[in-house]
């Protein structure tokens, strides 16, 4: 499961041939893992942790705030292609949540202002 970002459906037969698997094998794998998107994500992916530890310190509010501000739902990309908003269950930063991951970069103790600032930068 190397980090492939997203898998274009057109690449499935090529991948299958490369790995000596069937197209179905590859399709099954690609659709199983959340990390394999079938369409390209936005330029930046913002993932808000919705797991219990972050819930206990206000993650739900952050999710609503991000949805409203970006005008997209979870798993969706803004029309300009700049940001994909996703939920994630646990980033391993449970003692100092709520946590948000922007690209590969992790942020802790993210309050509403901090989230606004993060979304500002990505936009």
């Amino acid at each position: 499961m190397e980090d492939l970002g997203h898998v274009d459906p057109a690449a499935i037969p090529i991948l299958a041939d490369e790995l000596n698997l069937s197209k179905a094998d590859v399709h099954g794998v690609v659709t199983f893992y959340h990390d394999f998107r079938q369409s390209a994500p936005g330029r930046t992916t913002v993932r808000i942790c919705r797991a219990e530890a972050c819930q206990s310190v206000g993650a739900a509010g952050l999710v609503e705030q991000a949805k409203n501000r970006l005008g997209v739902g979870l798993g969706e990309t803004t029309p300009d292609g700049s940001v994909t908003l996703e939920q994630v269950f646990c980033l391993g930063n449970c003692a100092i949540g709520p946590s948000v991951q922007v690209g590969d970069r992790l942020y802790g103790r993210v309050g509403p202002q901090e989230l606004d600032r993060l979304l500002e930068v990505t936009a």
């Binding site: 179905a24 094998d25 099954g28 659709t31 199983f32």
Partner: peptide, 8 residues
């Protein structure tokens, strides 16, 4: 191996 389970 023409079939698979898609999604989860």
């Amino acid at each position: 191996f023409a079939l698979t389970i898609e999604g989860r």
